[in-house]
């Protein structure tokens, strides 16, 4: 799990309204998909890294994340380098191999495009943690509700989150109970043994948790969930001048980005 304690650090990012961050980071996400030129994506990565730095988040988190995406990053790079239909020949490896669509040489365009796609992957993978690591979850939920996400949907997310510890301890007990019945989780490499173990975990977990749902339902009704009145919130958030400023800049960048893209810039 990501280290949530980091959110307690003070940084300009924490002071921003949840909505501002959500919108700004969504815009980065849209822009990184909009452009495919390595220079443009590199610029976006630069912006994300500046935000990461200003939020005082450790670089180690990015390294940890990247571990999980190393394989897909390598696949992306290799496929693009070898098979991108480029013109500028850099290294000739062999004669053309039509069966696999390989032209026989590595092109500058292929390398640049591969790099662009890997950079895109990096930006995509660190945008979401950037939001989460700088915003306490209640604030994030409030931001979502204020952005007109249906309250009941936000309620499901927050309730799920508060149920998580009890579900996890239930799952741990079930795993222990299964061990006592002779299941082994630790036989490394035995694929089907592990598969069988996850079956033995899920069935009792789902059935047991659904049994608890009836209690939760009563608790919800007895606390007037769904009462036909306008809800008020304990937490409230207000836009500050900085929020407005950042939103204005964000929207300006988005519009510029879209215009550039329509004019044909930033496409590889």
């Amino acid at each position: 799990m990501m280290n949530i304690d980091m959110r307690t650090r003070k940084s300009p990012m924490q002071k921003l309204d949840g909505r501002t961050k959500l919108i700004a980071l969504s815009v980065i996400f849209v822009l990184v998909l909009l452009f495919s030129h390595p220079a443009y994506i590199l610029a976006l990565l630069g912006v994300v890294m500046v935000i990461w730095w200003s939020a005082k988040l450790p670089l180690q988190t990015i390294k940890d994340l990247f571990k999980y995406f190393l394989v897909i990053a390598v696949i992306i790079l290799v496929v693009q380098i070898f098979f991108y239909p480029g013109q500028t020949e850099l290294i000739r490896l062999s004669n053309p191999v039509p069966a696999i669509g390989f032209s026989g040489f590595i092109t500058l365009e292929g390398i640049l495009f591969g790099v662009a796609m890997v950079l895109r992957l990096v930006v995509i993978m660190i945008v979401a943690p950037l939001m989460v690591l700088t915003t306490p979850l209640p604030e994030l939920m409030l931001a979502l509700v204020k952005l007109k996400i249906p309250y009941r949907f936000a309620f499901i997310m927050t309730t799920a989150l508060s149920l998580l510890p009890s579900i996890q301890s239930h799952a741990a007990i079930i795993q222990q109970a299964q061990l006592c019945r002779g299941i082994t989780y630790d036989t490394a490499g035995k694929f089907f043994t592990k598969l069988r173990a996850s079956v033995a975990l899920l069935v009792p977990l789902i059935l047991g948790s659904f049994r608890d749902s009836q209690t939760l339902e009563i608790a919800m009704s007895s606390r007037a969930f769904g009462a036909p009145v306008k809800r008020t919130f304990l937490l409230d958030s207000q836009f500050s001048k900085i929020d407005y400023l950042i939103l204005a800049v964000t929207i300006a960048i988005l519009v510029t980005g879209i215009v550039l893209r329509i004019l044909g810039f930033g496409v590889y």
């Binding site: 239930h170 007990i173 079930i174 109970a177 006592c180 019945r181 082994t184 630790d186 079956v199 009792p204």
Partner: peptide
């Protein structure tokens, strides 16, 4: 020793039987 091995010597019945049944 693994639990799966020791379970043949010491059986453990959990408080909630539903946790053991699947």
């Amino acid at each position: 020793k693994k639990v799966s091995y020791l379970s043949r010597k010491v059986g453990y019945v959990f408080q909630n039987p539903d946790d053991m049944l699947f």
